[in-house]
Computed example of a mutant assay.
Amino acid sequence: MDMNSLDVPEQQASQFELRFQSLFHTGKALAFPCNARGDVQLDALSAKALENYLFARAVVGREYASPEVQACEG
C-alpha cells in the first residue's frame, strides 16, 4: 500500500477514511482521509495530523489495531 499517492480524484478520496481503532479505549480512534485502497496523501495532512498518522502506524499492535478503510458517513 503506497501511503504517499492518490490515484483517484480528491473528491472520491474524501469518501473514505483509514481508521486506526484503539486496542484499549472503546470509541477512541484516529482516522485519516484516504482513497478506496487506503492510500493517504501525506502532503495534504496538517502537521498534527501527520504526527498522529505516523504515531498510529508505529504503534499498530501495541496501542492501535491494524488500520481499516471505511466509507465516510454522510
Rank of each mutant, 00 (worst) to 15 (best):
M1D: 02
M1T: 03
D2I: 03
D2T: 06
D2Q: 05
M3N: 03
M3F: 08
N4S: 09
S5C: 07
L6I: 11
L6S: 11
D7G: 14
V8P: 00
V8F: 08
P9C: 10
E10F: 09
E10A: 12
Q11P: 04
Q11R: 12
Q12D: 14
A13R: 11
S14W: 10
Q15S: 11
Q15K: 15
Q15V: 07
Q15Y: 09
F16N: 01
E17G: 08
R19Y: 01
R19G: 00
R19T: 06
F20V: 04
F20E: 03
F20I: 03
F20K: 02
Q21I: 03
F24Y: 13
F24K: 15
F24M: 09
H25D: 15
T26V: 14
G27D: 10
G27K: 09
K28P: 00
A29S: 14
A29E: 13
A29L: 13
A29K: 10
L30N: 05
L30K: 13
A31Q: 11
A31G: 07
A31F: 07
P33V: 06
P33C: 05
C34F: 04
A36K: 11
D39K: 05
V40W: 02
Q41L: 12
Q41R: 11
Q41T: 01
L42R: 14
L42E: 12
D43G: 13
D43W: 03
D43I: 07
D43R: 08
A44R: 12
A44P: 01
L45V: 05
L45M: 08
L45R: 06
S46M: 05
S46R: 10
S46K: 07
A47Q: 14
A47M: 09
K48V: 14
A49T: 10
L50R: 15
L50K: 14
E51C: 07
E51K: 13
Y53N: 06
L54Q: 14
F55I: 04
F55D: 12
A56C: 06
A56P: 04
A56W: 03
A56L: 03
R57H: 05
R57G: 07
R57Y: 00
A58F: 02
V59E: 14
V60T: 08
V60A: 02
G61H: 00
E63R: 14
Y64G: 06
Y64S: 03
Y64K: 02
Y64M: 11
A65L: 02
S66V: 09
P67G: 00
E68D: 07
E68M: 08
Q70L: 15
Q70A: 12
A71G: 10
E73V: 15
E73F: 11
E73D: 13
G74V: 12
G74P: 08
